[in-house]
Write a protein that binds this DNA or RNA. Structure first.
Lengths: 469, 469
DNA sequence: GGGTATTTGTCCGTATGTATG
DNA sequence: TCATACATACGGACAAATACC
């Protein structure tokens, strides 16, 4: 079947269906689609071009009526014999200078920060967006609650309760423009003079934020259960920044016992707080979902941070923080005056998105999708080689490969790059210069790679790392 | 195999396939269909329900994509394991009833923070919004530049150059979610150990931000020309926060000479900076527009902050900061890692809005509108009484009434309130407890009051303050 | 036990309704 | 009113699995 590569200009003065029509007509005229050849089905093409099926149908109908293609009911459309067809001006389209120059140094990118590009519910979002701009006009002009719209906070609170076992009222929530901002805000809320303990390796944005806002920092080693509370206990830290659900980058899931130890640490002295970053907890593939640390916290020591960046789209720029009562009080006293950083329209869209059940459906869809990719990646990796172990799987959208001796990270990354595959080393996530492992540890994020790409990429990795294709 | 007993409501507003989808989803959720159990085939069910097979197919496809069922080709559909699936039952939507609770105690509100409610180009904005969501889909998934999209920054830089005489390249601009955020960011960029001089009275959000981020603060008195540089010179401040175009709340416009003095202050010692908040400079009604202070700054001492809150809508949450080279360098070193706080979609919408000339048109429209209101308010006020003088007119969207002796602010506000008119006193804008004037000074913002309302409101004020209707 | 009819998911083209500008 | 685009609903063709003779 002929593979079409049309680039549509949406919003152009030329309607979509005419662009499709014109393209295919040209391909047939100039023989790139020969007579009898099957064309992509309306469904396939509509999915491929990301337009409605009816739009493609309109194009096909026009081609049909002009005799360029033939329809075989229930089978498909086929290019017709075009001899004798009038061709007034078979204009040769000169290739518009290729825009793709800057891309594609890497054919495959296992970035651990990716999200799937194709699953965003554009149509729903657009509809909700329009509804908000039509229905709630006046709302655009009221500045809105600094913490975020009450309705959205209610929706988030309900979601967190059911999905993550987080106990909170909407009043405890602050909606903000991204995790970075919320961390910055939190630092302002807590004020100066704190020492924060970070896992090592950790989420570097957090490390940088604390560092640049003049917090004292100490790093605490991790074992397979997460941050070592016995080590934490010996530090002077009064804040602990942790990712119990799926540590970044290690992928560690903190078991209940360790969580309890951590909570005990938090109440041993006054004014200790745990900052729980639950950045990608939405995605778990095995076993029962573990409730958030916040859910076990009876003493109000856990500050919970979550985001829609991973679960919807990074460009959305919406995250939320759940503060215990004592922090709430500080927030209102010190930072209650700071206006919300999220557009009210966006907040209203998201609120509707959650309330109307779209968010639930979307999450389930994404989970199914990511699980599938996760399974395929695991299967492919097991075929690739045996001199590494895998960790951090079963949750999130990335996993780690721990190689045996004799392999350096730089070498692995370089070899992969030479074959067009971008992989990431663990060492860049260590702070304070520490990097305890001599052996290569490689991160593979699979969120923005489809099945086919995963297979091809692992195939290339095999070639790169083991020399056989 | 599970026997389904669905009663479909044909012609309902809920589509058939969604009814089927919803029913089966519920059965699975509530365990009436257990995992692994076979579902009726699309044909069986379509016959049973007397709908098309494709309708059933559509329902099954949705269930499949959300992970509720699994497909075994040529064999059938089977209920999947649903552990970990998200089930969000939103709590009752926040009653739209109590939204209006806090409003409408006042019939007329002369808030100095208002904007006009009816002039927002909803249709244009909606169209651009739609275009962005259709056109630049992939952009949603790239995180975007921390400073804001390059295109938007170019557009802002071009606008600032033409309209405000600001000299900058797009690289010097940071786009952020509101002035509050940009001030917070700026504090992080500058780091600790600074002393900032504020006009008194001043924009209280700025005062609070500096105070809460542990900056030393000193206040500098104002005369009719703005901040007194001679007083500033005697302080230890290395930062000066000023609003030369139209000081808030006094409405003072700083003349050229004073601006030069201020610039001279900034170069007298190293590492001094002027923060210029140009929050409502778009609106001037008399005389030539005065370029921004930044435009006169040859030494790179001025940090310029502007916003779209006043000129478009507060809910938009987009502001921008122009940094001189030296601050740029600090920004990149200390805060370059902080992700943008503005949704990419919103940035793209705004960029198009500016580039397509809508912003220019909108500004001119708003200026004409506000000038009209300004003129009418002035005329009405002159008819109202003679025991006050007016200042701060000719620019911005608010002005001040300075009353003679024997009138206290509290009394004026109370009298107005008793007649359903909300006015604002100057004293709340003073910081450090200072409030030099004994006499009442009243702020009147006219941005969100139309001609009719202005006339009615002033009429009521006359009644309230002078006793005659 | 091997051929055959049936069942099944999957793919397909088609028709009509609806929202928007 | 009309063009454009999308949503919903319909039923036939195909190939693989399976049940049945």
């Amino acid at each position: 079947m002929y593979e079409l590569t049309i680039s549509l200009r949406q919003g152009d003065r030329i309607p979509l269906y005419e662009q499709i029509y014109g393209y295919i007509r040209n391909e047939i005229r100039e023989g790139r689609i020969s007579s009898g050849e099957k064309l992509p089905s309306t469904r396939m093409l509509s999915r491929h071009l990301d337009v409605s099926r009816s739009t493609v149908e309109l194009a096909y109908e026009q081609l049909l009526s002009e005799g360029y293609i033939e329809s075989r009911p229930y089978r498909g459309y086929y290019a017709a014999q075009i001899e004798g067809l009038y061709q007034i001006h078979p204009v040769r389209k000169v290739g518009k200078a290729d825009k793709k120059r800057n891309r594609a140094q890497y054919l495959y990118d296992f970035t651990p920060n990716g999200v799937d590009l194709n699953s965003f519910p554009y149509n729903t979002w657009r509809r909700l967006s329009r509804e908000c701009l039509v229905d709630d006009r006046a709302e655009l002009f009221r500045l809105g609650c600094p913490q975020g719209e009450a309705g959205l906070r209610s929706a988030i609170s309900a979601y967190l309760h059911q999905a993550r076992g987080v106990n909170c009222s909407p009043e405890q929530i602050v909606v903000g423009a991204g995790n970075d901002y919320l961390l910055m805000l939190l630092c302002a809320v807590l004020g100066t003079g704190h020492r924060v303990a970070l896992e090592n390796p950790t989420y570097k944005q957090a490390y940088r934020m604390f560092k640049n806002l003049s917090f004292d920092i100490c790093t605490v080693d991790m074992d397979q259960k997460g941050m070592r509370v016995d080590v934490l206990d010996k530090t002077e830290a009064d804040l602990a920044f942790v990712m119990p659900s799926h540590q970044y980058p290690l992928g560690t899931v903190m078991p209940i016992r360790r969580r309890m130890e951590l909570l005990q640490w938090s109440v041993k002295k006054q004014d200790r707080y745990i900052i729980e970053d639950d950045y990608d907890s939405e995605f778990r593939y095995k076993g029962k979902p573990i409730p958030a640390l916040q859910g076990y916290d009876a003493e109000g020591r856990v500050i919970y941070i979550g985001t829609f960046s991973k679960s919807i789209a990074p460009a959305i720029r919406m995250s939320y923080m759940v503060m215990p009562e004592s922090v709430c009080e500080m927030y209102h006293r010190r930072c209650g005056f700071i206006n919300s950083t999220v557009s009210k329209v966006d907040q209203m869209i998201l609120q509707k998105f959650i309330e109307d059940g779209h968010y639930e459906r979307h999450l389930n869809k994404m989970r199914a999708l990511y699980r599938n990719r996760h399974d395929i990646l695991l299967a492919e990796l097991k075929e690739m080689g045996t001199d590494f172990s895998i960790s951090g799987e079963n949750a999130g959208v990335h996993l780690l490969l721990h190689f045996g001796s004799g392999r350096t990270e730089e070498e692995m990354i370089r070899l992969a790059a030479a074959n067009g595959v971008r992989v990431y080393g663990l060492s860049e996530y260590y702070v304070d210069g520490a990097s305890p492992s001599e052996n290569a540890v490689i991160l593979l994020g699979y969120a923005n790679m489809d099945e086919k790409k995963i297979k091809e990429a692992v195939h290339l990795l095999k070639k790169a790392w083991y020399g056989n294709a």
